[in-house]
Nucleic acid binder design. Sequence first.
DNA 1: ACCTGAACACCGTTCAAGT
DNA 2: ACCTGAACACCGTTCAAGT
Lengths: 194, 194
Amino acid sequence: MQLHKRDVVDMATSLLDNYGIADLSMRRLARELNVSPGALYWHFANKQQLLGAVADRILQPLGEVDGEWRMRVSATCAQLRDALLSHTDGAELVSASFAAGQSESMTAVLDRLASAAREAGVASGHAELAARTVIYYVLGFTADEQSRLQWDAAGADVEHTVWTEDPSARFTFGLRLLTDGIATHSDEPVTSVL
Amino acid sequence: MQLHKRDVVDMATSLLDNYGIADLSMRRLARELNVSPGALYWHFANKQQLLGAVADRILQPLGEVDGEWRMRVSATCAQLRDALLSHTDGAELVSASFAAGQSESMTAVLDRLASAAREAGVASGHAELAARTVIYYVLGFTADEQSRLQWDAAGADVEHTVWTEDPSARFTFGLRLLTDGIATHSDEPVTSVL
DNA sequence: ACCTGAACACCGTTCAAGT
DNA sequence: ACCTGAACACCGTTCAAGT
């Protein structure tokens, strides 16, 4: 039977979940699909592009949200973090794909956050930067959280400092730092910062 | 003559500057030093540790700064960005080493920023998170800036949108978002946000 | 103590040739 | 159109054996 892009991305995601990003190689993937390595290059130009497709698969659960801009930012970021934590090394993989500009879903997230920033009153020339700053935070925080989580699950007795307790609360706190900064930079007079 | 850690890090840095992180391999490094690949493993436990040493070399120009907390934050971040931009793929390499916890210099930067956050009035349980948020921003922004810069230098006519013009001003703007957020989260009453 | 040589177990990518 | 087979040019890491 023919090999379809879908099957490739499915298998890649399953390899990721079961063995992690280090074992997600083109050769291993081909072996698991019972095709030769070269076959993958008929469907994808290179590994980066394939990983971008996996990133978009991981981010499929994300959806539009509405409401006041602060709500939209925190809901979008919570969705993003949840999706990343649902797959082994999810944060690392999506970070790489975002940096390489290979994930359409991340572009969509960027647009949502930028529009929220504009609604908050940030000048449109600066709205994308504000959005990127939020994304850097979510990716950085979650990659960190996930590496500790996975180390822990792997049996290493990682130090349980203030860092490992209630990650969701810490995530929210860090995010508020950013949204408060955005509110302050509004061109409109600040109505209710606290 | 004997191989010293210093020589290895020197050569690794020169390979990085001349050919980029993709060509900085243990084997290539050994070849350039006229030793066998195995020799490197007498001096470094693995590649990650070696890259951590290169990261610390890149960050050597950073120094303590003093003054009001906002000043300390912006000076530290400016130093960091300058150091990263001084080496090919500097931001990518230092990001990876920071994530892997292999750079002592980044730990020092983290401490400096956390102490500034505490001085700003952030509760000490949250100061390190505030500091990490700032670092995620600097690393993310600079990695982005550098990849565009290097693409540009490589001859690709990258679109000159609002993104490529006056990166330093944009960097400062994003950083102010964060410092304003930190100021807002002070336990002390906000005295002068604007 | 420090290093070599050689091996082990892999990589990503290309491309003529097949069906 | 889609895939195989085989090659090209590499990787990181280990470790007995040498000096």
